[in-house]
Nucleic acid binder design. Structure first.
Length: 313
DNA sequence: GAAACGTGGGC
DNA sequence: TGCCCAAGTTT
């Protein structure tokens, strides 16, 4: 079986790639947001917490929760010393609460296996619960300046437009995209990772602020002259049918149970929990309520003891 | 590889 | 109003 080429076809890279690098770096230096986890005093743990919270959740909703977390748990050991239920409660309504559970588990792993310090290496980060390819690269690069190739949804969209000429990337991440992303990384052998950090962060920020999914602000783009999508006349995206509706789903019902448990300061009797206002508001039938509660218990997002159901210990 | 997994805001 | 989207990971 032939190996794929190590880098993207050089013919597909723009001849003025260095100019693109410089343009985005300069734009980022001026327009990049002053987010607290980008400040030097945030530290690796601050970066790590932000990356978990930002998985599928917008910056504006993460900001206040991140500030609370960093004040309350300034180190992995501080979080590791708490019951997991405290992490779930402090997670609030960020969504996908298993991220809080995994971040708590990762903090305990860091204390046990890494002497309480967030690991620097991609492979060590990848081994932590809740850390996938994106998050491992992001922490390694943004917290430690390592030249890892970071690819998130913003970066995929910028690449699709700037270099491939498509309005949006395909739903599934392809090997060709990964090769392109690798090939685009600036040569960072001798600069301590500063170029890689600026490139990854700059492209991501460009995607978040200018090269947005809908209504991109191309007039404000520092690399519009090099954009394959603009050159092609901004062809419209072809939307692929999306996932299930929200109303009536297990996700809605599970979310309602978690909201009820977060608001309770003591275990709630099973019958009382099933009749909580937020739970009843879902209009879900009894069998669905039972199934969802059972799944939350199985996932470790809730715990049932003698006195009722509560967030886990 | 598809499907599941929360929540809220924008157009 | 409904559909789309938001710094993904896991099974």
């Amino acid at each position: 079986m032939p190996r794929p080429p190590a880098v993207a076809d050089p013919a597909r890279l723009p001849a003025d790639l260095p100019r693109v690098h410089a343009g985005i770096a300069a734009w980022f230096a001026v327009h990049g947001r002053d987010l607290p986890w980008r400040r030097p005093d945030a530290g690796p743990w601050g970066v790590m917490v932000s990356e978990y919270m930002l998985q599928q959740t917008p910056v504006v909703r993460v900001l206040p929760v991140w500030l609370e977390w960093m004040e309350r748990w300034p180190t992995p050991a501080d979080l590791a010393a708490e019951p997991s239920g405290e992490a779930l409660r402090a997670w609030g309504r960020l969504g996908y609460p298993r991220r809080a559970l995994r971040l708590h588990a990762a903090a305990r792993r860091i204390v046990e296996d890494h002497d309480g310090a967030v690991p620097e290496r991609y492979e060590d980060l990848l081994a932590l619960p809740g850390v996938g390819a994106y998050t491992a690269a992001a922490i390694s690069c943004f917290a430690f300046g390592r030249p890892e190739t970071v690819v998130d949804t913003n970066i995929r969209r910028v690449h699709a437009r700037l270099f491939t000429g498509n309005a949006l990337p395909e739903p599934a991440y392809t090997a060709a995209e990964a090769r392109l992303a690798e090939a685009l990384m600036p040569d960072t052998e001798h600069d301590g990772g500063a170029l890689a950090n600026a490139w990854n962060a700059g492209v991501m920020e460009l995607g978040a602020l200018v090269c947005t999914a809908r209504a991109p602000r191309c007039d404000d783009c520092p690399v519009r002259d090099a954009c394959a999508w603009l050159r092609a006349g901004q062809p419209a995206p072809h939307y692929t049918p999306r996932g299930q509706p929200w109303a009536g789903t297990d996700r809605q019902v599970r979310g309602a149970f978690m909201a009820a448990l977060r608001d309770a300061d003591a275990p709630v009797g099973r019958e009382e929990l099933l009749r909580a206002d937020v739970v009843l508001a879902t209009g879900a039938p009894a069998d669905q309520l039972e199934r969802c509660l059972a799944s939350l218990l199985a996932d470790g997002l809730a715990h049932e003891g003698r006195h009722g159901v509560a967030l886990p210990h």
